[in-house]
Design a protein around this nucleic acid. Sequence first.
DNA 1: TTGAAAGCGATACCAA
DNA 2: TTGGTATCGCTTTCAA
Lengths: 341, 341
Amino acid sequence: MVTMQDVAKRASVSIATVSFVLSGAKPISAATRERVETAMRELGYRRNPVGAALARGRTNIIALLYPALQRPASGTVMGFFTSAAARAQERGFNLVLWPISNDAGEAAALARTGLVDGVLLMEVQMQDERVDALAPGTTPFALIGRTRAPEGLTYVDVDFETSMSEAIAALSELGHRDIAFITGNWDADHLEGHGAAERSHVRFLSEMSARGVTAPLVLHCPEDSLEGRRFGRELVEQHPEITALVLMNEHAGPGIVMGLRDAGARVPDDVSIISIGSSAHMAGMADPPLTFMRTPAEELGRLGVDAIIERIESADAERPAVLLACEMQPGESLAPPRATR
Amino acid sequence: MVTMQDVAKRASVSIATVSFVLSGAKPISAATRERVETAMRELGYRRNPVGAALARGRTNIIALLYPALQRPASGTVMGFFTSAAARAQERGFNLVLWPISNDAGEAAALARTGLVDGVLLMEVQMQDERVDALAPGTTPFALIGRTRAPEGLTYVDVDFETSMSEAIAALSELGHRDIAFITGNWDADHLEGHGAAERSHVRFLSEMSARGVTAPLVLHCPEDSLEGRRFGRELVEQHPEITALVLMNEHAGPGIVMGLRDAGARVPDDVSIISIGSSAHMAGMADPPLTFMRTPAEELGRLGVDAIIERIESADAERPAVLLACEMQPGESLAPPRATR
DNA sequence: TTGAAAGCGATACCAA
DNA sequence: TTGGTATCGCTTTCAA
């Protein structure tokens, strides 16, 4: 392994000088810089990050903690991951997916070893043990998502409230009143305390009530295409009055459309659908392709990394909180309701 | 941060002693060990992995390089990842998913910095640049998958040849002769040089030819449910003689079944299906659930980690190569062909 | 603008 | 069985 010593010797300078040209921390004359850089090139020198980490007390590694490792990772998750990694690299950090369980203790242990400079938590619950475990420590952390009371925490999250309002507004303008909200299966999939579902639900109720609908239909469907199909069939039979669905369950989407069709309800002629928090990939798997509110995964990834780096670089910076609404992406699943056609 | 110094002072021993009780490298009297452990507990000491890494020249981090980060990660991939991480932890290593592009240079750069002790490559191509870039270096690496000529490399892979033979045997015993092999879309999804598809294809041809079928049907279908549905419909129309499918395209599976049904062919009454290299999750999304050859993802994850650790611990250990066949998992998609019913 | 040298936190060799 | 100490590769302060 080529060390700084080797470079210094070859360039006839001290290792301090080499370090300075590498980091740019001190001004170095063009001539010396040139010599040092030549030496580095000739020797094929790469700075040893472990030595640097020990000296600086910083590893420049950020851990992304994504707990649901047993299930397939959706395109949204992967998009987030990819953009976060890219952004981290731009800013001189390595972002790695650290596969530890959902266990709060493990997260805290990782933080305390000092192996990572910061931690990014995904799949944050309304009441999240990991947050409680990390909060007393000194390792900065940020949330992708937010707890029930996120004040004082650094987080970036989807603005589900606004997204829901926009979805309802869009359906409303088309003339829909009989709108159902479909989420995942709270019991089976631990959606209890799932921020996205809970916040959207509350806003759904208030938006509907503002439009004079006091007890709108809210249903849960397992996050699976086959179950979705069954669900779609039953929906038509049991609630034939429904003319539009607000979907927050991207995996069931394609199946639901099939189920509706099985039962004789065409999309969008008989039932309009708008899917909140989906990825283009999944929305496009339905036939017809669904109009959806795209999760700003890439943007959140970037912002999440920026937020955690802010916290790393200055411990008592203000704690940024970002909410980003989903953006409506036209598909072919919206139309006026039957009655008004 | 509590350091070894602090512990040593409090236990009235030298830091060497503390290090020894921690690593167990040298015998320590029960009494001193007790004192040191008490001190550690009272102080809440955690060994600093960065300091240890610098001193030992080892970070105990293994990087898992998974290139296809833009697409959703299947259950198989996640299963692999999870079990690999668990195994690494058992053996005292951290396995992290290191999100770098497919770029060979980046992989080599990561290896050369010494930040990771070893590298595990996923999605290995028949001809893989990353292997060429890593081979000259000193950082051990192992493949999940294998190149066209993997001799001398450390790898673990699915034994697609054997799996295919077993699939054909199973169909054959039921009486099927008109069997088609369906892979992914080679062009669109870069399956060209994809070891799984290529090796299976070759074996498919030889097995069929051994049974007197000289030009069996081989088709490509995009890895997507909707495309699969279209594909299924066309298959029935254009090749009505086919009574069985060997599928190597888990994402299209559910769609293909639907397409077949759309065109009037029921599974398994009219067409039997066996899916090679699938996960239970995906196979279960079809209706009826598909009989499939399960990718031994968890086993491969474990073995892959064992293999790379072997290489890390003793540079010139023999280079283990492991091939694991898929195991048949009964579903409801197999039946004798129409003619013989 | 450059260099000497003191760490950073642990490991492990050599003595005792 | 224990301790002193050089060492790992780099950063950074203080002097020059």
